[in-house]
Design a protein around this nucleic acid. Sequence first.
DNA 1: CATATTGTGTAGTATACAATACACAATAAG
DNA 2: CTTATTGTGTATTGTATACTACACAATATG
Lengths: 119, 119
Amino acid sequence: MINALGKYIREKREALRETDRRYTLRKVAGHIGVEPSYLSKIERGETSAYLTEEKIRLLAEYLNEDPDVLLGLSGKISQDVQEIIRRRPQLFAQLIRDLKRMPDHAILKIVREVRDGNW
Amino acid sequence: MINALGKYIREKREALRETDRRYTLRKVAGHIGVEPSYLSKIERGETSAYLTEEKIRLLAEYLNEDPDVLLGLSGKISQDVQEIIRRRPQLFAQLIRDLKRMPDHAILKIVREVRDGNW
DNA sequence: CATATTGTGTAGTATACAATACACAATAAG
DNA sequence: CTTATTGTGTATTGTATACTACACAATATG
């Protein structure tokens, strides 16, 4: 499985560090509850280094990033979203496959209409 | 992770067997490429017995079932669907969460409109 | 300059996942 | 009634995932 998370969070962390010296690898590691050596492996994209969803969420919070994006970068999908799909697999699989080639704005339009209660 | 697959496929296999004697556990196991003892464990819902997506697909074909349904029952989501979500995690996570409480017919309506190109 | 901090290298661990191999008792078929 | 077939029990295996522990060299700080 791909691991694009590392490069992304290293860049974000270094960017944050420009204005706030506290964003060291060790501080971040401590905050999400892993050994610094392990976070180092992740940031450098070592293929055998992964984080659990829980830790990716803590990381997202600390780096002010969207958890779904960070999960996506490490090849994962939020457990709650997975659960929704698993309850009605045919329906959701169908919908998602149909939306594969739709541009973002078309999907956002659906989101808005669903929220407005047009269904 | 839950494993409701076992009960479901045992019932389906036994139903098929009523009219076709070839639907034995051993035959099905041979068809999908696992040891009979392993399929036995799965059908009886032993928590530590799982099948890969590839084998669940072969099983679905052989039992004339929807692969997405069988994947769902074993707590999985089709790889191709996962890939679609991972490419635009924010967008899809948002949409799926918003659709959580929508009735089937409302989601089907969206599917139909997407297919009709109303976007 | 001494020392504190930082990132990284190496080695090792626990658990989940995805199976195999083979023996065996119960049932079915010839 | 013998033989074949069926489902299951037990033991074991390999790989992926998700980490820890600790040493160490380079860099930064007082």
